[in-house]
Amino acid sequence: MTSEGPVRLTLLPEAARFSLRVRQSDIAAAARAFGAALPARIGQTASAGPRSSLCLGPDEWVLHTSTDDAEALQQAFAAIAGAAPHSLTDISDRDRSILLSGPLVEDLLSTGCPRDVSSIPLGAGVRTVFDTVQVVLIRDGVTDFRLEVARSYLPHVMALLAMANLELAVAAG
């Protein structure tokens, strides 16, 4: 998917994505099953191999991994269900991810996101809104963001981003 303008918008292919909910007392066990850290601070990320985690709430993480690894990940968590009760729910198909890259990416996001996008540190993620739509925003680089949005809201968000990107093209030109 392409769009005219200074920011490159790329719709990423579906990958494996899970919502993990677990109590404080069982985080360590869950992290062992996951094979990577589950950061305690909201907004922080951690990763190991194909697996990465983003803390979205005091007991909530979104886990990403490759499609090939999805089943292994589910089995690892199933094995600890008795000792460390938790909820691992497949949301691979619920959300889509858009990659936004370019020097004006913060301006583009600020057309719809009320947060101070520039204050999101590298490697951090936040649950926020774009226009009226709930999204998760992850900063992969100085000028690279990933925006995760529920599937049916994607066209609306994409249309707004494309429109604002055109507008930025005028301002930049």
């Binding site: 919502s19 909910r21 109590r23 007991d59 009760p85 938790h86 909820s87 729910t89 497949d90 949301i91 691979s92 198909d93 619920r94 959300d95 529920a150 599937r151 049916s152």
Partner: peptide
């Protein structure tokens, strides 16, 4: 209660 809720409307 040890139970968690996840919206999966759009997963399926």
């Amino acid at each position: 209660l040890r139970v968690w809720l996840t919206s999966t409307t759009e997963q399926w």
